[in-house]
Amino acid sequence: MPPRRQPQRQTQVAASYLDPEVIAKRRRRHLDELERSNYAEPSASLAGIEEDEDAPAGRSVKGKARQFVISDKREWPGMPKKKSSHSVRTAVLYKKNLEKLIDESGIANYPPEAPTYLSAVASPPREPPRLICSVCGYWGKYKCRKCAMPYCDLNCEGVHNETRCERRVM
């Protein structure tokens, strides 16, 4: 029996700790974080409640118009007051995020040889990735056995284990 168990345990370790899909997910989430305009969720801050309702930009419920329209709130010297046309009003009141707009634009159905936003992305790099210590930024010679983040020495490993390990994994 024991000889049988060992390989089983090994595969388990590999699956639960270094699953490339988990790492890929972590990367994607990190990249999404790097796209954010604000770190703090606006709803958490208290100042200017009326703007906060709307500020997360695009969280409005599907089909529901904005409650707070900032472009209506301000009058500017020299700008004539006017009623916006229906199309303009729709664009102001109903925000769509980029993902939805790409979807609705139909560029995914363009012929494959036609260049679009989707096809213009640079191809994956040819060089192998460099490992950089996630703690101090120096070359990361080692990888954490639990979460595969690189670190450079014992000191950084300690910091990593205390603060960061698996924080980004989920």
């Binding site: 695009g58 900032i70 472009s71 709130k73 925000k95």
Partner: peptide, 11 residues
């Protein structure tokens, strides 16, 4: 994507 904000700024 956010035309409300852009309109306020352009105005």
């Amino acid at each position: 994507t956010d035309w409300d904000a852009e309109k306020a700024i352009w105005d």
